[in-house]
């Protein structure tokens, strides 16, 4: 069992990882073909795994409806929506003008936009709650946030224009641009560099079989 559950997957990970690394350093068309075929294989396997997802979805929600657990009505709506979308897709296809597409464009899309638009409200409440000048760093963050928020709107530019040309560097939009281009870009680069190096190390750990927590067990 250990052989099938641990050894074989580790060998597959090692070989696949090594192949992917080597293809990166070759210019031949064959290398590109290997790279793209790996991606296609992953998508095919993930496609089959979707079935697992559907089974899981069914199990969880049907069990909830059966036991009339709190929120069972939502599960019922989910099952009905799932069936309507699947059946309409199977019968009439998913091209433009079909019932599936109509539901997608007129129900799914507005709903998704609605959830996304809640972000505006949540940003306001989170900003109100969290942006407190509790320390020097927090005060700095607060000041930067205010500057960027003013600098990114026409109002900030209008106010800035009141300044004479000799004080151009004090214009809020100019400061905002500078914040984006210098400190923000520098900090992001530093974080990205750390992420890049760590992900290389992590990948090597996985390829060499040193890291295997993701296979279950520590």
């Amino acid at each position: 069992m250990e052989f099938w559950k641990k050894r074989i997957p580790l060998i597959i990970v090692f070989l696949a990882g090594l192949t992917m690394i080597l293809t990166y350093y070759s210019s031949r068309k064959e290398a590109v073909e290997i790279l793209t075929s790996y991606s296609k294989w992953y998508q095919i396997i993930a496609g089959f795994a979707l079935l697992l997802g559907v089974v899981s979805l069914g199990q969880v929600h049907i069990a909830k409806i059966r036991k009339l657990k709190s929120g069972w009505a939502y599960s019922l709506i989910m099952i009905i929506a799932f069936l309507v979308m699947s059946i309409s897709g199977f019968i009439w296809g998913i091209e433009k003008g079909t019932p599936f597409m109509w539901i997608f464009e007129n129900v799914t899309t507005p709903l998704a936009s609605t959830v996304f638009s809640i972000l505006a409200f949540y940003i306001a409440s989170a900003a109100y709650r969290a942006f407190r000048a509790k320390s020097f760093e927090a005060s700095l963050m607060l000041a930067a946030a205010i500057l960027v928020m003013v600098g990114r709107i026409p109002f900030g530019e209008m106010v800035s224009r009141l300044l004479p040309d000799s004080l151009y560097f004090l214009r809020i939009d100019v400061i905002t641009q500078w914040l984006f281009r210098v400190p923000v870009a520098a900090a992001k680069r530093a974080i990205l560099l750390g992420i890049g190096l760590s992900s290389v190390t992590m990948s090597l750990r996985i390829i060499l079989g040193i890291e295997r927590t993701y296979m279950g067990g520590e």
Partner: peptide
Amino acid sequence: SKWPVAMSVCQEVVREA
């Protein structure tokens, strides 16, 4: 989970735990 493959890996990891 947002992904079926990630879901099955998570199931395996939690079961093992």
